[in-house]
Amino acid sequence: MGKAFIFGDNVDTDSIVPGRYLSVSDPQELAKVCMEGYQLGFISKITAGDIFIAGKNFGCGSSREHAPVSIKAAGVACVIAQSFARIFFRNAINIGLPVVESDAAIKDIEQGNVVVVDFEQGRIVNLTKLQSYSFAPYPPEIKAIIDCGGLVAYVQTHQIKI
């Protein structure tokens, strides 16, 4: 559960983690610069459990996994968008950052609304407006990765052989 931050369309990965910070791999270091290209010092506004709400094509641009790693390490519980850039989407699933597509939630949720996402039921609940919005379940192949907590754990759990 947390407060919603509203972003527009086409938030690019340079806004999430600017290129100058890419010589770092440590999640905690990357958390410090989360959304730094969007607004300097943005991290100071985030509390654990907060939710990002965005328009179309969230995470467009580079393949840098540093972007979802930074968002996750900053404590953001979920990114809800109208659509995601495909590399960002894969990366988020692979590292265990929840990402959900929902037009209804995007239209209704406002800055600062308190939101909780129920992944089992496939529902987003807006506690401020007392509204809920459903979202489509993931395909089973992708849900299996999510259920393991990410691709590394999935590969370990399933002991996939070449």
Binding site: R90, N91, N94, I95, G150, L151, I162
Partner: peptide, 18 residues
């Protein structure tokens, strides 16, 4: 196509990917 680092890791280990 471009992928992120965890997909690279799985690709490097397995030689396949979804």
């Amino acid at each position: 196509t471009g992928v992120g680092s965890t997909d690279l890791a799985a690709g490097m280990a397995l030689g396949k990917l979804w």
